[in-house]
C-alpha cells in the first residue's frame, strides 16, 4: 500500500485527528494574533500605569474602579444612548425596506444588490462623505441656505446627531438583510390563510408577518447594536471632542492620555458587552434553526 493511501487511511479512521490537522494552522494564527493579544490586553488592565505609556508591574483593580468616575460614566451612558438610537432608527428605516424587497418580485435581486452595494465601499470613505454633506460649508447647508430655509449655516457636524446619522448610514444594511431573510422565508399561504379567516391587511401584518419576522429583527438589531457600541471612526470624525464614545476613550488612553492599563480595562469591558451580545445572537440563531 502506498504511503499516500496509508496516510489517508490513518485520517479516515481518526476523523478528529483529520479535523484538527485542517484546523491547526488557521487556529494557530488566530491564537497568536487574536486570542493572545486579547489575553495580554486583559492582563494589562490589572497592572499599574507606566510613566511614559506602557505598564509597570504590580496588581491593581484601580482602573476598573475608575469606571465610577462621573466623566467616564457619562461616556458610557452616551455610548449606550447613541447605540440604542442607532439601532432604533435602523429598525424603523430597515424593516419597511426589507418588507418591500421581500415582496418585490422580479425587482428583488436588483434591490438586494442596492442594499449590499455600500458594503463594497470603504467605511472610511462613507464616513468622510457624511462630512462633505454635513459640514458648515457642506452640501446640506448650501442647499438649505440656497432655498432660504435658514439664513446662517446650521451646526450639523460634531453633534451626537451626526454620529447617529453616520452610524445608521454605515450599519443599515446589517439590519435590512436578516429581516429580509426571515420575511423571504415566510410562506405566503399563511397570509392567504389569515385573509380567509377574515384578517384585514394591518391585522395580517401584526398577527402573522411581524411575529414570524421577529428572529430577523433580533439578529439585525444585534448586528447593528454591537458594532455601534464599539464604534471608533464615526464618533472620531463626526462627533468631535464633546461626543466621545467608549471607542474614542480607549484610543485616547493609548494616545495622549498615556494610560494603557485604563485603556485596556475599558477595552475589556467593551469586549464583555460584545461577547454577551454574541452569545444572545448564537442563541437566537440556534433557536431559529430548530424551528
Amino acid at each position: 500500500m502506498s504511503i499516500r493511501r496509508r496516510l489517508l487511511g490513518f485520517f479516515a479512521r481518526r476523523p478528529a485527528a483529520g479535523a484538527w490537522a485542517l484546523l491547526g494552522p488557521g487556529l494557530l494564527w488566530l491564537l497568536l494574533f487574536f486570542a493572545i493579544p486579547l489575553a495580554v490586553l486583559i492582563g494589562y488592565s490589572v497592572l499599574h500605569r507606566g510613566t511614559y505609556g506602557g505598564v509597570s508591574p504590580g496588581f491593581t483593580l484601580e482602573h476598573y474602579r475608575r469606571f465610577s468616575d462621573p466623566i467616564y460614566l457619562a461616556v458610557a451612558a452616551r455610548t449606550l444612548r447613541i447605540a440604542l438610537a442607532t439601532t432604533g432608527l435602523c429598525l424603523l428605516l430597515g424593516y419597511p425596506v426589507a418588507y418591500v424587497i421581500a415582496r418585490a418580485g422580479r425587482w428583488r435581486n436588483a434591490l438586494l444588490f442596492l442594499v449590499i452595494l455600500p458594503f463594497w465601499t470603504s467605511f472610511l470613505v462613507r464616513t468622510y462623505a457624511m462630512i462633505v454633506l454635513l459640514r458648515t460649508g457642506g452640501v446640506i447647508n448650501s442647499v438649505l441656505m440656497g432655498l432660504g430655509v435658514t439664513g446662517a449655516p446650521l451646526d450639523l457636524l460634531y453633534t451626537p446627531g451626526a454620529v447617529v446619522a453616520g452610524l445608521v448610514y454605515g450599519y443599515l444594511p446589517f439590519m435590512i438583510l436578516p429581516i429580509y431573510a426571515s420575511l423571504e422565508r415566510l410562506d405566503l399561504d399563511l397570509l392567504d390563510a389569515a385573509e380567509a379567516l377574515g384578517a384585514r391587511a394591518w391585522s395580517r401584518f401584526r398577527r402573522v408577518t411581524l411575529p414570524l419576522s421577529l428572529p430577523g429583527v433580533a439578529a439585525g438589531s444585534l448586528l447593528v447594536f454591537i458594532p455601534a457600541l464599539g464604534a471608533f471612526l464615526t464618533p472620531d470624525l463626526l462627533g468631535g471632542a464633546k461626543t466621545m464614545m467608549l471607542g474614542n476613550l480607549v484610543q485616547n488612553q493609548f494616545g495622549p492620555a498615556r494610560n494603557w492599563p485604563f485603556g485596556s480595562a475599558v477595552s475589556f469591558a467593551l469586549m464583555v458587552v460584545v461577547f454577551a451580545g454574541l452569545m444572545v445572537w448564537l442563541r437566537v440563531r440556534d433557536a431559529e434553526g430548530e424551528a
Partner: peptide
C-alpha cells in the same frame, strides 16, 4: 463531530464581532 467543535465554531465569530478598536489596540500591545 469532534470534541470542542461547537466551541471552535462559536469562537470564529468572536474576531468578527470584536470592536475593531479593541482588536487593533491589543495587537499593538502585543
Amino acid at each position: 463531530g469532534f470534541r470542542g467543535k461547537r466551541m471552535v465554531e462559536g469562537g470564529l465569530y468572536l474576531p468578527i464581532v470584536t470592536p475593531e478598536i479593541v482588536t487593533g489596540i491589543s495587537l499593538l500591545i502585543l
